[in-house]
Structure formats: structure tokens, C-alpha cells
């Protein structure tokens, strides 16, 4: 399965890059992420709970970042396995500043899926993956917005970390208890999300399956997701 796409994020490139290297952020933008741990420089381990086409499973995986060219590009090599299958993926993430100061995020990748996931869920996997990526990007945008300095038009300092210590916008919800250690430091750190903090993929997958079935329930779920995302984005501005 090959997937690629482009998204525009309403934030400067440096903030996007910092967010993409901050496991506190990543843990909250990966759908179904229960735990994310940095085990070394550019190496992560995580646990993700996903349901697809009726196959629910817990997957543990390792992610390695390669060819890192801050704040512009990295390659991501991921291997995950769970009771219902295995996923081996290679992807790239590339950032570019737009004339209006916002950032384009180009992503591309190829995943090889095995086991029950492949034989049962194959027809739905590509659609599901696209939806999950879409959800992740929106969540990323929301996270960046939450963490952004009050005045987003101020040019960001290129080497600034993801400003977890910066005061949070007054009307934003209280920032999660983010660690203060910079993302680049090869310290073993882990983020364990409580159930309420996890980005729930179930709703999304339910929405996807619902859409596939063209059922009213599915549409309602999608509308709810849309409203929630819209609300988050609106508050971020």
C-alpha cells in the first residue's frame, strides 16, 4: 500500500518541526496511541490500539527517524506487530514554508501489511490509513495551536524547542503535563496517555466503516468529528 499527500498547517515551519519531534505532541496526534517512548536519539517505541473492519487490536511498534535534515525533512522507518497482523512501513515527511508564513507538510510512504489485517481488512486499509493520517494532521495542527505563543505572527526562532515552557494561550485548555526536556536530548522518556487524552481512533474508524456502509449513523459520527475538530481549530486561532 502506497500513500502520499500534502497538508497545509497554519503555523510556521519551525513550530511544525518542533512538534513533529516532540513525543508529547506525537503521542497526542497518533490515533489510538496509548504510550510513546523515546528510547534513543530519533528512536521511539509505542503502543497503539486500533480497530479496523471489525479487527480490533493492540499493536506495539518501533519507529526510527533517518536522514534527519532539520527543520525540513526526515525519513521514518516503522515496524509494528500485534495479534492481528504486522505492519512494516517506510515514510518521509517534508516541510516547506509558504509565502504566507504557514507550512506545507508533504508525506509519502509505503506500508506492507500482513496477517489478519491483510486478509480481512485489505479493502478498507487504504481508506482507513488516509483517514487516520487526516486525523493525525488535524490533531497536529490543534496541538501546535495549543502550544503556540500568543502572537503567532511573531517569526519563530529556528532553533527553539517546541516551547512547552511558553505560556499557553489564555483561552486554551490547560496544557497537558508535558515534560520539559528538549526533544533532541537522547534521554529515555515516555508519555503515557490517560484514556481521556488519547486520540480515539474508534470513532474515526466507526465513521469510516459507517461511510462505507453509507449509514446515517456513520454520517452522524463524521459530523461530530468534524464539529470537534472545527471547534479545536477555532479555539486554537
Amino acid at each position: 500500500m502506497k500513500i502520499s499527500g500534502t497538508a497545509t498547517i497554519n503555523a510556521p515551519q519551525s513550530q511544525v518541526w518542533a512538534a513533529l519531534n516532540d513525543i508529547d505532541v506525537l503521542a497526542r496526534v497518533v490515533p489510538g496511541c496509548e504510550k510513546l517512548e523515546q528510547i534513543g536519539e530519533n528512536q521511539f517505541e509505542g503502543v497503539v490500539k486500533l480497530g479496523m473492519a471489525g479487527i480490533k487490536g493492540v499493536y506495539s511498534g518501533k519507529i526510527r527517524l533517518e536522514d534527519v535534515d532539520a527543520p525540513r525533512y526526515y525519513k521514518l522507518v516503522a515496524a509494528g506487530k500485534g495479534s492481528n497482523g504486522v505492519v512494516d512501513a517506510v515514510g518521509t515527511v517534508e516541510l516547506e514554508t509558504l509565502p504566507d508564513g504557514n507550512t506545507t507538510l508533504k508525506y509519502g510512504g509505503e506500508a506492507q501489511i500482513g496477517g489478519m489485517l491483510a486478509s480481512v481488512g485489505q479493502r478498507l486499509i487504504e481508506g482507513a490509513a488516509r483517514q487516520l493520517i487526516g486525523q493525525a494532521i488535524k490533531a497536529l495542527e490543534a496541538q501546535i495551536a495549543q502550544r503556540a505563543p500568543v502572537a503567532p505572527e511573531v517569526p519563530a526562532v529556528t532553533d527553539a524547542p517546541a516551547a512547552p515552557a511558553a505560556p499557553v494561550a489564555a483561552d486554551a485548555p490547560a496544557a497537558p503535563d508535558a515534560s520539559t526536556a528538549p526533544a533532541s536530548e537522547p534521554v529515555r522518556r515516555s508519555v503515557v496517555l490517560s484514556e481521556s487524552e488519547q486520540l480515539k481512533p474508534e470513532t474515526l474508524v466507526a465513521g469510516m466503516v459507517g461511510e462505507w456502509l453509507n449509514s446515517t449513523i456513520g454520517k452522524v459520527v463524521l459530523v461530530v468529528i468534524g464539529v470537534v475538530i472545527g471547534y479545536l481549530l477555532g479555539r486554537g486561532r
Binding site: I113, G114, A118, S119, V120, Q122
Partner: peptide, 14 residues
Amino acid sequence: YDDNGQLLTGTLMD
């Protein structure tokens, strides 16, 4: 089977 040897027709839906 796909090129990786995954059986794509693994259920009676497929």
C-alpha cells in the same frame, strides 16, 4: 495473493 504473499481473499466477503 499480493506480491508479499498476503492472501487478499481471506474471507467470504472477498
